Computed example of a mutant assay.
Amino acid sequence: MLLSESTSQESNVRIISIVGMGGIGKTTLAQMVCDNTRVKTHFSKIIWVCVSSPFNEIRIAKAILESLTNNTPQLIELDPLLQNVSQSIIGKKFLLVLHDVWTEDYRKFEQLNNALSRGAPGSSILVTTRKETVAKVIGTTNNNMFRLGLLSDEECWSLLSQVAFSGRSSEECKNLKNIGRGIAKRCNGLPLAAKVLGSLLCFKNTREEWESVLESELWKVEEAEKVLFPPLLLSYYDLSSLVRRCFSYCAVFPKAYEMSKDGLIKLWMAQGFFGEIGSRDMEVVGEESFRSLVMRSFFRDVQYPTWREEITFKMHDIVHDFAQYLKEDECSVMEVK
């Protein structure tokens, strides 16, 4: 579908949507598509833009134009930005990923779609969204809509156990297996929940510790989309108070923001999280805090480039929502235009 040419009934740009609830694996699937060798060969340009809410047409157009031209656009109004996108896209077969779309207002999408229509036949827009109505409003046909279903309990257990049993003896695994299967059922079919819980259980060595996870009161948390929050809360409260502060601070960053490890540690230091110790000691504590959050799956997409370049990472959308949930009584986050 993605690699086939447009039919005579389709416009130059095909719209394909991946639909499913938070934590189901939409981002992972979209990343796998973009990393596929055949996809890279088929499209002359692959562009990834995190949309989220609100749908900011100017920010999205700037991100697309920057990817097309490898230059940061200085334009600040939508019309000239879209004109430049339209000119830059002529004759190019592109794949544009619009990640985490929420708006159901077609007018927000229409101008952008018109600007992209000058791309070469076979170009595609790949949308990830939690809402099927969004996919339909922006023009996705049923044939081009992929609805991701929940994992079975057995699949959740397979994913969780791969992480939780890493490095354990067969005897240990046998002793913890029944409790682990009970915990896997708590994942409600969500891969992210299985991964987070598996990362937590890596640090639990006794049956009593595993049973405390299974029987925790935190499973009773109720609120919208918070089906994923109990596993995150279990891992969060298993952290030291210092590392909890470091994690919740990350709510100040935008969704899908690529953070620098060294930059973040400096911000933690500036906030006074590490107390009155020497700067070198602070950096060591910051490194330990960062590693702890990586091992618990709070940070993802960690990039370890050459020694001269910075280590970068991101947070999953749901993990970012969770961080903002923790901070909602302490601060508010505003997008500055």
Rank of each mutant, 00 (worst) to 15 (best):
E154M: 08
E309Q: 15
S88E: 14
C187N: 13
L201I: 07
D238F: 14
E211V: 02
R291W: 13
I76Y: 00
A164K: 02
K327Y: 00
M32W: 00
G180W: 05
C202T: 06
S240F: 06
W307V: 10
V284C: 03
F43M: 03
T69S: 14
L326Y: 02
L176A: 06
V49I: 01
V13L: 11
L112Q: 01
F322L: 09
N188W: 02
M282A: 13
L201A: 07
V221H: 15
N178M: 09
A164I: 08
L148I: 15
E283K: 15
M21V: 14
M315P: 11
V39Y: 02
E328I: 08
I89H: 10
E330K: 08
R245Y: 05
F203Q: 12
I311A: 07
V33C: 12
L75R: 11
L150I: 11
G272Q: 00
F290G: 08
F273V: 10
S332L: 01
N205D: 11
L29P: 08
F313Q: 06
E66C: 14
V319H: 05
L148F: 01
F247G: 07
L96K: 02
S292W: 05
T312G: 04
L200I: 03
L267I: 10
P254R: 04
I47T: 04
E211C: 04
G189K: 05
L2G: 14
I138M: 14
Q31C: 04
G20K: 07
T306G: 13
H99Q: 09
I89C: 04
W157C: 03
R59I: 06
K92F: 07
N70S: 15
E283T: 10
L159Q: 02
R14G: 11
N56S: 10
R244G: 10
N71F: 07
I47L: 15
P54L: 09
M295F: 12
P121L: 13
D301R: 09
V227S: 05
G272L: 08
G91T: 07
V137G: 03
